[in-house]
Amino acid sequence: MRILHTSDWHIGRTFHGHSTLPALREVLAALVEQVRENAVDLVIVAGDVFDSSTPPAECYTLLTDTLSALADTGAAVVVTSGNHDSAARLGFQSALLRSGIHVLTDPATVDTPITLTDAHGPVHVYGIPYLEPALLRRTWPGERLRTQHDAIAHAMRLIRADLAARGGRSIVVSHCFAAGVEPTPGLERDIQQGGLDVVPLAEFEGIDYVALGHIHGRQQLAPAVRYAGAPVHYSFGEADKPRGSWLVDLSASGEASVTWLDLPIPRRLLTIRGTLEELCSAADHEHARDAWVRAEYTDATPQRDPLRRLQERFPFCAAVVHAPAHAGERDGRTYAHRVRTARTDGELIDAFLAHVREGEGATDAETALIAEVIEGRTVAEALA
């Protein structure tokens, strides 16, 4: 059986105030063509289909069009909910969807698989939506559910019990933060990494392929446990991460042979650095004209209206950061101490400049100008 594993579409997300719907529409259309060209039997979307629990109407349109196009290829589609989208909103119309499209959002049915069959027998697909422990106590009364690890562990116990009764090959779809971290025996604490609950990799042992969502970059935690990442770039921090999906061939014995399929990148993301004047005029930045740009300008002092000036050259400049090239060395003194120890008005102004410039005080020219102004001349007179 051939499977395409994708996740984290985040339909409706903005990029520095710009809509990502046109780019995502282009990329998802390319994904549909990959499904058709590779004769995929099953498409898995592992959570965070929408970016919020209340997406605008055009987001539903894009999702409906994409799911319909995927179904038109002849592939079955299994979708789960993540922590961004609302399980209730994503799943409310699941009973009305056309044959072959399955939206799995109910924790109470994690042990009820979607079963597909190929020449080698059944493949059972178990969908685990994002599990919020505090909301599961009515679903699984009597269970200890303090962390997401607790919730995933219980879901996997239910899945293994069902799989043992059914037999056959298995796929688990889960939206969580998974890592090869084992809990310390006897120590009652939440296992976390970066503030997120970590689900130990061992919880997924015995499953033929585990399709994960939640992390925006592709990752292989084990040969058959992988994150596909998001299909488009949603931040400059993701600029160096490839965009695509995993193509999985599941053999008769359940062995997963996995290859990567790249997706197109509608607009590159670049970070450029230099003085504001260099960024606005230097020829070596011409390659960034049609890219999403994050500009770091290195002038010693903040410049006026840098975003507008940069967008005159780079229409898709989305972020500007003031990053002085040679920030002065801090001497460990607080601003209050600098003020208290200033002996003249000139030193007081210099202390202020050193504070706001990361340690760099007044230049020689500024010192002369400050002195003339303090002596009673106007700025115009001092500059004349």
Rank of each mutant, 00 (worst) to 15 (best):
residue 248 V to L: 02
residue 212 L to S: 05
residue 290 D to Y: 05
residue 192 Q to R: 14
residue 283 A to F: 02
residue 137 R to W: 03
residue 47 G to S: 09
residue 240 D to V: 02
residue 171 I to W: 02
residue 309 R to V: 13
residue 341 T to W: 05
residue 282 A to N: 13
residue 246 W to S: 06
residue 19 S to D: 15
residue 74 G to T: 10
residue 96 L to I: 12
residue 18 H to W: 11
residue 55 P to W: 07
residue 289 R to P: 02
residue 36 R to W: 10
residue 186 G to N: 07
residue 107 P to D: 00
residue 71 A to G: 04
residue 233 H to R: 15
residue 171 I to N: 02
residue 156 M to S: 10
residue 109 T to R: 10
residue 57 A to Q: 11
residue 109 T to G: 00
residue 347 E to K: 12
residue 367 T to G: 11
residue 14 T to G: 15
residue 67 L to P: 07
residue 61 T to G: 12
residue 254 G to N: 03
residue 123 V to L: 15
residue 260 W to V: 11
residue 173 V to T: 14
residue 339 V to D: 00
residue 117 T to R: 15
residue 162 D to P: 01
residue 138 R to E: 15
residue 116 L to V: 10
residue 321 V to W: 01
residue 297 Y to G: 10
residue 164 A to F: 03
residue 55 P to C: 08
residue 279 L to T: 08
residue 29 A to R: 12
residue 194 G to F: 07
residue 272 I to P: 09
residue 179 A to V: 02
residue 5 H to S: 05
residue 38 N to F: 06
residue 122 P to Q: 12
residue 379 V to K: 10
residue 54 T to C: 00
residue 88 A to R: 15
residue 282 A to W: 09
residue 324 P to W: 08
residue 142 G to K: 06
residue 323 A to N: 14
residue 67 L to C: 11
residue 46 A to H: 02
residue 378 T to W: 05
residue 239 A to P: 01
residue 208 D to Y: 02
residue 318 A to M: 08
residue 210 V to N: 06
residue 101 I to G: 05
residue 37 E to A: 14
residue 285 H to I: 08
residue 346 G to F: 01
residue 231 P to C: 05
residue 219 Q to Y: 01
residue 48 D to Q: 09
residue 60 Y to C: 02
residue 56 P to D: 08
residue 2 R to V: 08
residue 85 D to Q: 07
residue 317 C to A: 14
residue 66 T to W: 09
residue 86 S to P: 06
residue 256 A to L: 01
residue 127 G to N: 04
residue 200 P to Q: 11
residue 2 R to Y: 09
residue 98 R to E: 12
residue 288 A to V: 00
residue 225 V to D: 05
residue 23 A to K: 11
residue 383 L to S: 03
residue 249 D to P: 00
residue 158 L to E: 11
residue 217 G to E: 11
residue 137 R to L: 10
residue 334 T to C: 11
residue 91 G to K: 07
residue 127 G to P: 01
residue 296 E to D: 08
residue 246 W to H: 13
residue 268 R to E: 15
residue 104 L to W: 01
residue 8 D to F: 02
residue 257 S to R: 13
residue 279 L to M: 09
residue 319 A to E: 15
residue 266 P to W: 01
residue 30 A to W: 05
residue 60 Y to K: 00
residue 288 A to P: 02
residue 287 H to D: 10
residue 372 E to K: 13
residue 306 P to S: 03
residue 256 A to K: 01
residue 38 N to A: 14
residue 110 V to C: 07
residue 277 E to P: 00
residue 299 D to V: 06
residue 207 I to G: 09
residue 312 E to R: 13
residue 198 V to L: 12
residue 183 P to F: 04
residue 104 L to K: 12
residue 153 A to P: 06
residue 352 F to Q: 07
residue 207 I to M: 14
residue 34 Q to T: 04
residue 227 Y to L: 08
residue 185 P to K: 07
residue 40 V to E: 05
residue 256 A to Y: 00
residue 318 A to N: 09
residue 381 E to P: 04
residue 69 A to Q: 13
residue 282 A to R: 13
residue 159 I to T: 11
residue 246 W to E: 04
residue 269 L to M: 14
residue 178 A to D: 10
residue 244 G to W: 04
residue 297 Y to F: 14
